[in-house]
């Protein structure tokens, strides 16, 4: 009897410990643009939808595809391929719009395909590589996984108008 009780207590302790660990874990959603895998914090994602029609908006850079209707809201649509300097490509079955939000700012981003939800320890995230234009950098940091490196993007920078 006391053994069983001990078991339960132990179990609870481990649960408790894992909860402690949870606080140090960042949940990310990974996706592919071009050849590379990027990710953004899951909390910045409002939703992910399949491509729908959009309307072009004049006098914007090429990476701003236009605006689309998300259940009654008019939301800008940005093509990440063009944003990252890649040639635009036709949408495929795997193309998705990720609707990201940061405070009140919302925009849809076109990505080539989704990969997976990723849990990463904060300690496994390194700083972004030094570049000449630190202010303009879209990279928040680099996450190390067992077999690969993951680029974590700055959502607030992505949602910032720079034209």
């Amino acid at each position: 009897m006391s053994g069983k009780l001990q078991d339960i207590i132990n179990k609870q302790n481990t649960l408790h410990n894992s909860e402690d660990q949870l606080e140090d874990i960042v949940q990310l959603v990974g996706f592919i643009v071009g050849e590379e895998e990027y990710s953004i914090p899951i909390l910045n994602i409002q939703e992910i939808i399949k491509p729908i029609d959009w309307t072009r908006v004049p006098q914007t850079p090429a990476y701003v595809l236009g605006v689309f209707n998300l259940r009654g809201s008019v939301i800008p649509l940005i093509d990440l391929r063009t944003r990252f300097g890649l040639t635009p490509r036709k949408h495929t079955d795997e193309t998705r719009f990720i609707v990201m939000k940061n405070d009140d700012e919302v925009a849809g981003f076109v990505i080539d395909r989704l990969t997976e939800a990723i849990r990463l320890k904060k300690s496994d995230i390194g700083p972004a590589p030094e570049t000449a234009f630190q202010d303009k950098s879209l990279i928040e940091g680099v996450g190390k996984q067992e077999d690969k490196i993951l680029t974590i993007l700055k959502v607030n920078k992505l949602l910032e108008r720079d034209f």
């Binding site: 006098q59 605006v67 008019v74 939301i75 800008p76 949602l159 108008r161």
Partner: peptide, 9 residues
Amino acid sequence: SLGEYLKGI
């Protein structure tokens, strides 16, 4: 409105 991102076009 077109929102903050596209305002003032």
